[in-house]
């Protein structure tokens, strides 16, 4: 005997809820859905393994405090923090634009500055 896909989906949802809530009454659920144990057992083991493996982690207090300060403190003046959290593509584009701007400025300056002309005496023509 097997159960339908929809019943299995409902049973898996219910089993997951029970395991997450550390409710030991899993057998009752399996009986309620009239599901054969050989079908349910591999899923039950897997859900239990997932439940054990995914454990909530805590961000460091230093990080949460710093981020809160950056978000709510003085974001307008903290240019570095603002740039740091921009998307990578935007950071790269900004960097390229900055380099291009500096290059153009330097090139322009080269043309604007007077180039020293060689003296005729220096050339041995005097």
């Amino acid at each position: 005997m097997t159960i339908s896909d929809t019943q299995m989906q409902d049973l898996l949802a219910a089993l997951t809820e029970a395991l997450r809530a550390d409710d030991a009454n899993v057998d009752a659920l399996i009986t309620q859905y009239d599901a054969p144990m050989r079908e349910v057992a591999p899923f039950l083991a897997l859900i239990s393994r997932l439940h054990r493996s995914y454990v909530r982690v805590q961000p460091s207090r230093r990080f949460t405090r710093r981020l809160r300060a950056e978000l709510l403190g003085t974001p307008q003046t903290d240019v570095i923090a603002r740039i740091r959290y921009l998307p990578a593509r935007v950071q790269i584009a900004a960097l390229v634009a900055l380099v291009a701007g500096i290059t153009m400025l330097l090139t322009r300056l080269r043309f604007l500055l007077p180039v020293p002309r060689p003296q005729t005496s220096d050339l041995g023509l005097g």
Partner: peptide, 24 residues
Amino acid sequence: VTKIYNYVYYRTGNHHDAEDLAAR
């Protein structure tokens, strides 16, 4: 902040990127 940090941590697998992405 903790929820988003956890989500990002489990999707990236390390604290450094989790902090960076959670901040973003």
